[in-house]
Design a protein around this nucleic acid. Sequence first.
DNA 1: AATGAATGAGTTTTCATTCAT
DNA 2: TATGAATGAAAACTCATTCAT
Lengths: 215, 215, 215, 215
Amino acid sequence: MPKKRSDDTRPQRRDPAATRKKLLTAARREFASSGLAGARVDDIAARAGVNKQLVYHYFGDKDALYLAVLEWVYEEIRAQERKLNLEGLPPEQAIKKLIESSFDHLAAHPDFIVLLNDENRGGARHVRGSRTLEAVHSPLVSLVSTILSEGVKAGIFRKGINPVHLYISIAGLSYFYFSNTPTLSAIFGKDLSSRAARQARRRHVVDLVMHSLRP
Amino acid sequence: MPKKRSDDTRPQRRDPAATRKKLLTAARREFASSGLAGARVDDIAARAGVNKQLVYHYFGDKDALYLAVLEWVYEEIRAQERKLNLEGLPPEQAIKKLIESSFDHLAAHPDFIVLLNDENRGGARHVRGSRTLEAVHSPLVSLVSTILSEGVKAGIFRKGINPVHLYISIAGLSYFYFSNTPTLSAIFGKDLSSRAARQARRRHVVDLVMHSLRP
Amino acid sequence: MPKKRSDDTRPQRRDPAATRKKLLTAARREFASSGLAGARVDDIAARAGVNKQLVYHYFGDKDALYLAVLEWVYEEIRAQERKLNLEGLPPEQAIKKLIESSFDHLAAHPDFIVLLNDENRGGARHVRGSRTLEAVHSPLVSLVSTILSEGVKAGIFRKGINPVHLYISIAGLSYFYFSNTPTLSAIFGKDLSSRAARQARRRHVVDLVMHSLRP
Amino acid sequence: MPKKRSDDTRPQRRDPAATRKKLLTAARREFASSGLAGARVDDIAARAGVNKQLVYHYFGDKDALYLAVLEWVYEEIRAQERKLNLEGLPPEQAIKKLIESSFDHLAAHPDFIVLLNDENRGGARHVRGSRTLEAVHSPLVSLVSTILSEGVKAGIFRKGINPVHLYISIAGLSYFYFSNTPTLSAIFGKDLSSRAARQARRRHVVDLVMHSLRP
DNA sequence: AATGAATGAGTTTTCATTCAT
DNA sequence: TATGAATGAAAACTCATTCAT
C-alpha cells in the first residue's frame, strides 16, 4: 500500500513506461541492423531484457512495434528541425545551416536511413497508416520556399528553384552518402566512412548546393 | 507409360541456361520486393516455375543467389555506362549526359536501389566477397575526373570539385528520389511517383548539378 | 487526487457476488462457444468486464470455473424438473409433459449440450469430482419408473420398458437434434434450425415416444 | 536409378501415401481425444512418427487436417450404408437392419461422435466448405421414405411419419447414448459402458422405434 | 476486492536446406 | 537435370497463471 522505493535506484520492476522505452530502444537497434523482416522479436526482447510477451502487450505485434520506432525517429527529425530557428537568418546562412544540420542529423542517427529502407520498399504502408506521422515535413518545406524567395529578392539566389525538390536534394545528397557507404567504399576501393571522408563529404554537399543557387 | 517425346515441343525442359535465367529473374523480383531476409526460396522457385532444389543446384544457397542478382544489376549499370561514350563530348554535354543517363537508369531499373539496401545494411559483405564486382565503377570516376579538368581548363567549370564526390552526388540526387518516393509522397502529401513529377525531378537534378559547376 | 466517493453511484464496484456472477455468465458463453480447450481466460474476463485475475481469485483456475458452469447448468435442469409436478398426472399426460419439457429446456438452453461435450470427451472427470452433481437425475428416473408401472397397470403402456433407457431415449431424441443441427442441416441441405422445423421436430419426438409405449 | 526395394519390407521412407495415411490416423485419434482446439499438431506428428512440417505439406493447416478427418469418417458411414442393401428386404426388416447397423456403426467407431462435436459447435463450417461432403446422407433418407411408404401400404406402419425425422431419431437414439455415456454413468451411478449395458441399449432402441411405427 | 504488469512454457506455422529417386 | 518428400531449427504469437501494487 505505501509507495515503496519512490526514489529507489534499484532496477525498477513494474515500471511500464521504462519497459516500453527499453523495448523501443531495443527494437530500434534490431530493426536498424536487421531490417523489418530480418529482425527477431526474441532478440528485441532479449536486448531489452524483458519478457517477449511484453512486445505484444505494449505494441500489439511486430509491425506495430516497427511503426512505433518509425514515429520515434521521425519525431527526432522534427525536433531537430524545430530547433533550427532559420527564420531570423539571412537566406544564405539559413540554407547553409539547413544543409549542415541535415547532414549532421544523419551522421548522428545513421539508423534512420536503414529504418526507412523497409518502409519504402513496402510502399510506406506503416507511415500512411499513422496519424502521428501526418504532415511531418511540411513546415520546413514552406520555410525553404520563403528563404528561396528572399534570396531571389536579395539577388543572391537564382529564380525558378522548386523548394520541394531542393529540400529533397539537400536530403538526398547526405542520405545517399550515408546509406550507401558500404557498397560505395567497396566499389571505389576507399573507405568513405572515415572521419576525414565524412568531413570532406559535408563540405562538398554544402558547396554543391550553395554554388547551385547562385544566380 | 511416360510418353518419351524426343522431339518435345514444350519449351525448355532440360534447358539449364534457361532454368538458371528464370531463377535469376524470379529471384531479382523477389529480393526487390521482399528484401534478402524477407525473400522466400519457395516463392522464388514458384515464380520461376521450377523446382526449389534447383536453386541449390545452380547457386548453392540463398545468399549466393542474392549475390548473383547483385552481380547482374551491377553488370547492367556497367553496360549502360559503357554505352555512354562521353569521351568525345564537350565537358558540359558529357556531364549532362551522365546525369540524365544516371537518372534514367534508375527510372528504368527501380529495383536496383532496393536490392542494394540490404547489401548496405549488411556492410556490403556480398559485394566485397565477389571477384566480379571489383572496380566496377572506377573507370567512370576517372572519366569524370578528366571531364572536370577539361571543363576547368575551358573556363566553364569551377575548380576544386572532387570527382568521386561529384559522382556520388549525381547518383544520390536521383537515388534518394527513387528510393524514398513512398515515404516522401506520404509525408509531403503529394504523389511524387507520377510521370510529371518524375520529369520535373529529372530537370531539377540536371539543373542543380550544372549550375553548381559554374565557375 | 482520486476522488474517493463513499456514495459511489456507479454500479457494482466492490460487489463480490455480482462480479462472480458476471464471470460465471461470461464463462458459460465462452465455454459454450469455444469449448473447454478453446475458451480463453482473457476473453472470459473481457466479456465479464472485470480483471482477469478475478477468475483466479474467485474460482481458482480455468478448470474450476468450467466445473462451476457445469454445476450451474445442471442445477437449472434440476430446477426445471422440480417444477414439473408429474406426480398427480395420469401416466400418458405425465410422459408427454416430460418429453415436451425436456425438449423445451434444450431449446431454451442450447448451450447445455455443447457444454457437456467436452465433459463427455474427458470422461466426465469434472462431474465425477463434484459433490454438488451427485445423484442429480435419479429422482426423475424413479418417477419415470413409477409412471411406467401405472401405465402398464392401466393397460395403456406395454410392459418391459426400461425406465433408465426410456429416460435416455427421451433426452436423446431432443439432444441429438439440437446438438447436430449444423451438420445435419449442411448434409440434408435444409435448415433444421428454423422455428417451423423445430416445432415439427417437437411433434415428431412426442409422437414417436407416445406411440412406442402403446401395448 | 534402378528401382530398389520394390518389394521390400523395410519401413518405407519416401512413401507419400503411407505418410499421409499415418498422419490422418494420428489426427483422427488426437482430434477425437482432445477436440479441435485441444489437439496439438506436435502430438499428431509424434503419433504418426513423422516430421511436423508434413502436416502442412500434405494438408495445409490444422483445420484442413481436421476436415480431412471428417471426410474420412463420413466416408466410412457412407460405405457402411452402401453395404446395407435394404432394397430387397420387407419394410420391417429393412428398418430393423437400419437401426441395428446405425447403432453398431457408432459402437465400432465411437470417435465419430466426438469428432462431430467441435464441428457442430463451430456451425459446421468445415462440412459446409467441403465439396466431398455434399449430399452424403440423402440417398438413405429417400430410401427410408420408400420403406415407410411400403410399410404403410402393407398395413404394418402407421401413416404420417416424416422420414427425415425418423432418420434423425434412429441416429439420435444411439448417438446420445454413446456420446453421453460418461456423464450419464456418473449421474445415474451405474456403468452404461459395459457390454451388457450396450446390448440392452441396442435392444431398447430397436424396440422403441419398431413399436412406434405400428399403426 | 481489484488492477494491470509480467512471466514461461507452449502453439501453430514457416523456412532454408537436404534426401531419395 | 529435375522432382517432391522430408527435416530440424526457429519464427511470430498465445495463453494460463502469478506478481506487485
